[in-house]
Design a protein around this nucleic acid. Sequence first.
DNA 1: CTTTACGTTGACGTAAGCGTCAAGCGCCGG
DNA 2: CCGGCGCTTGACGCTTACGTCAACGTAAAG
Lengths: 138, 138
Amino acid sequence: MILLMASRAPSHDTWTIAQIAAEFGVTHRTVRHYEELGLISPERRGTARVYRRRDRTRLALILRGKRLGFPLEEIRTIIDLYDAPRGKTSQLEYAISQARIRRVELEARRRDLDDALAELAAFEASCRADLDSSGLRT
Amino acid sequence: MILLMASRAPSHDTWTIAQIAAEFGVTHRTVRHYEELGLISPERRGTARVYRRRDRTRLALILRGKRLGFPLEEIRTIIDLYDAPRGKTSQLEYAISQARIRRVELEARRRDLDDALAELAAFEASCRADLDSSGLRT
DNA sequence: CTTTACGTTGACGTAAGCGTCAAGCGCCGG
DNA sequence: CCGGCGCTTGACGCTTACGTCAACGTAAAG
């Protein structure tokens, strides 16, 4: 049970835009678009973008947010929350309040998701019942 | 435990576009847009649209699909699946296979959602820990 | 009979999220 | 030195999901 492989061991510590795009299954245009919107901000070596682990983490968060149906601007505020400075008490309290808001939102979506799954399971069962009965009579 | 109230008892059996839109918190333009894409197809009384319970059900499915981030075209195929004729065996088998595809997709999103919730909870806990320790030292 | 309210069909506008050129720069092998 | 490959920056295009007029019909209300 401890046979979990390290999922995608990072063989480098920097990546080019092509490597990042290929690995995450998006185009370089998409990556640049996220940068234009301020969701990621890679370093530069000369004019070329250099991506580090931090950028990969953020990109993973972006894509997951997209799969969950969040707009990019909202995704930006969410992942900025994770990376925000947390020095002062007021900042910590703000972060916690924002996290609570996000949690409530995510829990609502989870209810939607569970409802959809339940309906789908019922539908599937109903189809199977029809299939069995028609099969038995044939 | 049998105290479940009928949620939103339907006081009519037909509705106007304005009533439907207001009840679901969308504009009439949105409702018409869904009709243009074939997601709902209300009856007509003269030229005016008349919405029945079936349309309300479909609209609820549409909006939930949207909250889960599905494009309208995909939502159409999903709810059409629910309403599709299920007479012949081949149709039943097709419906079941499609339902399985949807279920796999929804389960994947649920993993995303649970991951996001777990990370958010960890973040919140971390913030609270920082807040407590700074509070204790003050 | 006219106003008012609510409905209708176009048709164009717009924001988000990229796709798709076009044109240029920098480095590396031959 | 020169081609090619990979990277760069625009800039325009396209699809989705509506918003927003405009112009008109119709039915009840005054």
